[in-house]
C-alpha cells in the first residue's frame, strides 16, 4: 500500500498510482507501536513491504490517466503507452522490496526543502508587467480564458 511514507513522497509524479485507493489511508500498520508516537504518526505508516511486489501496484488505466491530465490519446496511443508506463511503475515498484523494518517512519522524505517559514510581511513583486506580458490572452485588467462554467 503506497501512501505518504517517505519513499512515496519522493515520487510525486506517481501520485496517480493511488488513484483508486480509499480517501483515507488505512491506519493498519505492521510497525511496532511506540507509546510516545502520536496518532498522526501512526496513521502515516501504511507503506507495506509485506505484500508481494507486483500486487502492491495497480496497472494503470491509461485512458483515465490521459483524461485526468487533459491529454487526448487515440486508442492506438493508449495501447502504445500502457506497457511503457507499466515499466516505469515496475521500476519504482522495486522500492517495495526495501526493508523498512528498522526505519523510523516519517510523514515525508527529508528532502532538501528549506524548512524555514516566513514572517507575515508584505513585499510586492516588482515586475508585474513581465508576468502580465507573458499571459497568452489578457484584456486589462483580466486574464481571458475560454468560457468555463463547470469544474467537472
Amino acid at each position: 500500500m503506497v501512501s505518504y511514507a517517505g519513499v512515496g513522497s519522493l515520487l510525486p509524479r506517481l501520485g496517480w498510482m493511488r488513484m483508486r485507493r480509499p480517501p483515507n489511508p488505512n491506519p493498519r500498520s505492521r510497525w511496532p507501536t511506540r507509546t510516545t508516537t502520536t496518532t498522526t504518526r501512526r496513521r502515516s505508516r501504511s507503506f507495506s513491504s509485506s505484500s508481494p511486489l507486483r500486487a502492491a501496484l495497480d496497472s494503470p488505466d491509461v485512458s483515465l490517466l490521459a483524461d485526468a491530465a487533459r491529454i487526448s490519446l487515440s486508442p492506438n496511443e493508449v495501447r502504445e503507452f500502457e506497457p511503457k508506463i507499466m515499466q516505469v511503475i515496475d521500476w519504482f515498484g522495486q522500492l517495495q522490496a526495501v526493508d523498512l523494518e528498522s526505519i523510523e517512519p516519517s510523514l515525508r522524505a527529508n528532502t532538501e526543502v528549506d524548512a524555514r517559514t516566513r514572517e507575515d510581511a508584505p513585499e510586492a513583486f516588482d515586475n508585474r508587467e513581465a508576468i502580465i506580458a507573458a499571459v497568452p490572452s489578457y484584456e486589462d485588467p483580466y486574464i481571458k480564458v475560454p468560457r468555463v462554467l463547470n469544474k467537472e
Binding site: R18, L107, T111, V113
Partner: peptide
Amino acid sequence: MRKKEGLADYRYFPEPDLPE
C-alpha cells in the same frame, strides 16, 4: 448546478516543496 458523476479524483500527493 451540476450532477456529480462519481467521486472527483484529486490525485492527492504530498507537496514536495514544503516541509512538514
